[in-house]
Amino acid sequence: MNYIELLDKKPDLVTPGTSACQGCPAELSLRATLKVLGENTIMCIPPGCMAGAGCVGWNFDSGLKVPVHITLLDNTAAVLTGINEAHGRDVTVAAFAGDGATSDCGFQSLSATAERGENVIYICYDNEGYMNTGFQRSGSTTKGSMTSTTPVGEVGKGKEQQKKDLPLIMAMHNPAYLATLSPSHMSDFVKKMEKAKSIKDGFVYLHIFSPCPTGWGFDGAKSIEVARKAVETNIFPLYEVDHGEYKLTVPNKNPKPVSELFGMMKKFRHVSEQGIQDVQNYVDKKYKTLQALVGQE
């Protein structure tokens, strides 16, 4: 079955009507994730866009067609551990959490779960902020971004710090498998998700880039285009680490300048040339690190 047939034929385990914004790629990623992971899965979704969109349900209704727990922002990975202990490994135990819940609030339990090598899958969808509570910045927000807590005016110039590189931080925990995924590269996405499901000997961390039309300020029809641009500019390189082996799954020999991504949305509209150059330098340096890890300097 190729990836298009898979996405067409596998049962959609998410409610048909979620309240995720028009054009939200996190909704696409969650549906694709569960098409691959399948019915024998227990999900944990902490507060965030996907929980708020009704995927954890309301009152007596569920938002998924598999068991789903709404965890706390700070204990998602610990809950995965407990569920896995209770059920053993024939069930897939997975989290689908935002970047705030992952890189900030839930990092302690995530780091500990990775270090213990628990047999669970932790998936982060990275929309670079606390989007469902009104677009506050997170550790994963790109430098220069205008958010409600890094406003732009006479004094403020957007977020002052560079993006926390969570995938690489997690790679340094030596997980059994780690990968970065983008909804713009669906064949690569499905392949990595299938691999994640097949891992039986340790912790799996997946990081999905998830542009937010409402919070970043672009037309929802362009969500996939923006995600693709992030890959083409190396802002979000696609790679995997399979038991310590680094591999660029979508090598990018001629990266486009980051300014091409910056020009696509409102959150970067105010950023000066120097501001763009700062991010360009950071992205170039990060990519060099990655190439060194892959072993192709």
């Binding site: 409610t15 009507g17 019915e39 009704g54 007596f60 938002g63 067609k65």
Partner: peptide, 23 residues
């Protein structure tokens, strides 16, 4: 749906909203 593990409450009802009306 037959499952080996636990059955979610959602089998009684799946939360959904009429998103077609947004268009």
């Amino acid at each position: 749906m037959a499952r080996d593990f636990i059955t979610p409450k959602g089998d009684e009802g799946i939360y959904q909203i009429d998103t077609a009306s947004w268009r």
